[in-house]
Write a protein that binds this DNA or RNA. Structure first.
Length: 590
RNA sequence: GCAUCCGUAGCUCAAUUGGAUAGAGCAUUUGACUUCGGAUCAAAGGGUUGGGGGUUCAAAUCCCUCCGGAUGCACCA
């Protein structure tokens, strides 16, 4: 167990003896500004507040019951009632030595695993994956990696858009205007063309729209020809998905598309009707407000002309068809029955926040028992903008296809690598460029707080300085080169010596290494990979300070050299694992 | 119109239960080293956290209000 956790447990026990009724779950120990110490707790101030106690007195009483002499050199009460802890350097060194022996890497697997269904990526059949998919896919994958690393069982599920009204138009196009040659060379582009052409015709001609609807009805009724064509469209799309996911190194446990839930949709609606949760209105069936919330907070009401009117969650259209609310409800039901998760997490565009608010509300009313044990979470994210501040498009104004984007990233990275390391063989430069280019795109997407929009910039994400993937990869490669040069790695692994933290830069680096686990927990707790990005960037910065001030291979004595090599190795391992957790590979040389 | 999210340095962004003097990178200026990888590092300037009010020992964070932006508002997903 890491030192801060030991302190935290002891502090919680001390608080319990002083305030037996207190909820100590909020009594946390967190890293703090180095001038105050290594760790800090500010929990006593809020505990004192609600009890109208003097916070400094409470801190003093708690401190009297707290024995952390084995871990800390001093505990201070500061300011309004902060507790500041300073680790003994020996404790710091011992923690690093245990890591050097491979006993841990500054994080613990969770003591309270939670089963999480992670729903992300969700591309559509017959459409190209575009730049927008990088967000859901990248954030979702980083979250699944983080949760797994911490020991939580994860079921990642790609809820592919393989059903819906668009197939009426696609089928009509396929039967009437399909270009076989184009389909062979670029199936996704051809299917997209079919959809766009027919869609435009339908907008202009109601008769054409009726034709498309007729194809859809046939498909829904199980017409063998339409089913076969639909399956062919899915198969062709799957080839594209597989290619992209393979490049991005993203894996799913499940890929149960919308069509998987078709057989359950009628039963879902019947059940909602039978329970009195849904009712018919204007020929459609919807779930309406239950009046328990004030109108402003009620997701089923909307204001029009100064009046609150119903804004139901429709589960059946007036033509008898179902929509995505119905599918999502059936999906929740299936996931509950199949995996009994504690959480279902949807990594989906923030624009759908309203939909999820309704979905979660209907779920709570539909399955009140399950709602007590299963938390539904919408992990939303903002848009990617061009440097004009408008949604990111190609120069001609079209959608940026994900495959093209990845190609360009690799190409740009290749040019830089060739410029800087032209002496490496081309195959190696290609491989470096692949890792750097893809890493740059992923990292740039994970770095900003996910809820805000961000501006896409090749120059910034591929820059070798600043908070970028290339910088972190370079930091890693630089450490690795020390070992290449010294051939000291095997010796280090065989006989890890004592770690001596004498220089301030060594201490600072060591402290930062210890915070890796806290960072991972924060990522998993708030579904925010950017915490890990910033942690790694800071780690690289701390390493630089160490590297500038503390000669490693030229250290003054063998013991110092061994100790510093161990610090290098631990830093490299955390960088590598951290990047891996973000879905980013590393290279030994660049 | 109503709702949601957002507004932080010239630009792009951070800020982990409300915590101590709001931090990085870019850009700008200055400096270091015939380099354990210069694809480097160090330093400086730059802020009334959109405005105003409130709660609190403590507010970028919570509440109210105004301004500005994005998004969403039954039978597309």
């Amino acid at each position: 167990m890491l030192p801060h956790q030991q302190i935290e447990l002891k502090l919680q026990a001390a608080v319990r003896t002083v305030l037996p009724d207190a909820d100590v779950a909020a009594v946390l120990v967190r890293p703090c500004d180095a001038k105050f110490g290594d760790y800090q707790s500010n929990a006593l101030m809020s505990l004192a507040k609600v009890r109208r106690l003097n916070p400094r007195q409470l801190a003093a009483d708690t401190l009297a019951r707290l024995d952390v002499a084995d871990l800390c050199s001093a505990v201070e009460i500061a300011g309004a009632g902060f507790l500041n802890f300073r680790l003994k350097p020996a404790v710091l060194a011992q923690t690093l030595e245990a890591a050097a022996r491979g006993e841990h890497l500054f994080f613990d697997r969770t003591a309270a695993p939670r089963t999480v269904v992670l729903d992300f990526s969700s591309p559509n059949v017959a459409k190209p994956m575009h730049v927008g998919h990088i967000r859901s896919t990248g954030i979702g994958d980083a979250l699944q990696r983080t949760l797994r690393l911490l020991g939580h069982p994860v079921i990642s599920d790609n809820h592919i858009g393989d059903w819906g009204t668009q197939f009426g138009k696609l089928l009509l196009g396929w039967k009437q205007i399909l270009n076989r040659e184009a389909l062979r060379s670029d199936p996704i582009a051809e299917m997209e063309r079919l959809y766009q052409a027919i869609n435009a015709e339908c907008d202009a001609s109601p008769a054409r729209l009726e034709e498309a609807k007729a194809e859809l009805v046939k498909l829904q009724a199980g017409d063998p020809e339409n089913i076969a064509l639909w399956q062919e469209m899915i198969r062709l799309s799957q080839v594209q998905f597989d290619t992209i996911y393979s490049r991005l190194n993203v894996k799913f446990d499940q890929a149960l598309g919308e069509s998987f839930y078709n057989p359950q949709l009628a039963a879902v609606v019947a059940d909602l009707l039978a329970r009195g949760l849904a009712r018919e209105s204007e020929g459609a069936v919807g779930v309406f407000s239950d009046g328990t919330l004030p109108p402003r907070e009620d997701p089923f009401l909307v204001s029009r002309d100064g009046e609150w009117i119903p804004d139901p969650a429709l589960v059946r259209k007036s033509d008898g068809g179902f929509n995505y609310m119905t599918t999502d409800l059936a999906t929740v039901d299936y996931r509950l029955k199949t995996w009994a998760p504690q959480e279902i997490v949807y990594v989906v565009d923030d624009r759908q926040a309203g939909h999820f608010k309704k979905l979660f509300d209907v779920f709570a009313r539909w399955k009140p028992e399950a709602a007590k044990t299963t938390k539904l979470v919408h992990v939303g994210f903002g848009k990617i903008l061009g440097d004009d501040g408008k949604p990111f498009k190609t120069r001609s104004g079209g959608t940026v296809k994900l495959g093209d984007l990845l190609n360009e990233a690799e190409e740009r990275a290749f040019q830089t690598v060739s410029e800087k390391s032209g002496d490496l063989p081309e195959a190696q430069r290609r491989e470096i460029a692949r890792v750097v280019g893809l890493g740059a795109v992923k990292y740039a997407d994970l770095l900003p707080n996910r809820q805000s929009d961000y501006i896409f910039s090749w120059d910034k994400m591929l820059a070798l300085q600043g908070n970028t993937a290339p910088y972190l990869l370079y930091a890693y490669a630089r450490i690795r080169s020390i070992f290449r040069k010294s051939e000291a790695e095997s010796a280090l692994r065989q006989a890890p010596g004592a770690i001596v933290l004498a220089h301030p830069a060594e201490l600072a680096l060591a402290r930062h290494l210890l915070n890796f686990g806290l960072t991972l927990e924060a990522v998993a707790g708030e579904y925010r990979p950017n915490f890990l990005c910033n942690y790694l960037f800071e780690l690289a910065g701390q390493f630089t300070g160490f590297y500038e001030n503390c000669p490693v291979l030229k250290a003054e004595d063998p013991a110092t050299r061994t100790s510093r090599l161990a610090l290098c190795d631990l830093t490299a391992r955390v960088l590598k694992l951290g990047l891996e957790t973000l879905g980013i590979e590393t290279v030994e040389q660049m």
